[in-house]
Amino acid sequence: MRHSGVWILAEQQGGRVQRISHELLTRGRALADKRGCELAAVIFGNRIDAADLSELIDRGADRVIAMESPRLEHFLVEPYAACLLKLLADRRPEIVIAGATTTGRTLMPYVAILAHAGLTADCTELDIEAGTGNLLQTRPAIGGNILATIKTPRHRPQMATVRPRSTRPADRAPGRKGQIERLAAPADLPPSRVRRVDFVPSADEHGLQDADAVVAVGRGIKKADNLPVARKLADALGAALGATRDVVDRGWLSYPHQIGLSGKTVTPRLYVALGVSGSIQHLAGMQTAETIVAVNTDPDAQIFHVADFGIVGSLFDVAPALTAKLRAAQGKPGGEESK
């Protein structure tokens, strides 16, 4: 049997399908159309919301394969890998795409080894090679300074992860036709040697990577006491607060705020950099943002090389002015606390 079909690995939390799944459908649909094959959304969980599963069809899947068991409620590498490997062996897809989430970036490399498949992480572009039908996977390399296009000529499936928020969710076309299969997990699922015993939600400013807008502070913020200037602007933009390594190393913000090679990678629609010089290590974590606005006193700061809009000036002047203008534009009390 030859390999055929494009799969995306949808994700759920508490039985609700997550946004990354819809983003993956955008990628998957384009590939399946080019390849002239079926697009399937594969999802593991427990008691997954039925309407959410039909929504995957509405948003472009031709088939939904939902595998359910209480043991699949939360991601654990062994049961998830066993289920995915079984589906891969039974159905032989040609391409499998997952989100570069903490789940995707763990499950995919684990499964790729056992399936002897090629896997490319954090692809920014996916395409089908004319003639051969191979998946062309383009990703940043060496800290994002160069791009590499990678293919997997002899192994199937071809596997890739793409960064969350690097694609728009696929549009909904209610009434689209497709098949939903709800399957029980294999009876011989091996016991997991890792158990989830608790969960501690992030206290505040979680979801930096999920945020549509990010306001990031660099050393130019000078001290922790000055952070409200940035927080107010972030509030006005509905943005999450991020920071450079310098700021985190000085203890002004905690590590989960760190953006860059040694922190998080973000690809928001809007990135506002306040007092950020733009070291390579920081740029690697944010330069794929759709729009970048930078405020820095140094006209030669590196950050301006990747910015779409730059203001040479003090963030302590510009950020409050911008906050006030945004509040005014939104019809809210200018510059004042609106809560």
């Binding site: 896997l119 062309l136 940043p140 590499a148 296009t149 990678i150 990747v306 779409d308 730059g310 203001i311």
Partner: peptide, 20 residues
Amino acid sequence: PTRVVKIFRPSVARKCEKLL
């Protein structure tokens, strides 16, 4: 399994509108 077929410089040359 994977092969690098091309390495190239990203065309991220953003046109920065700069104001003082």
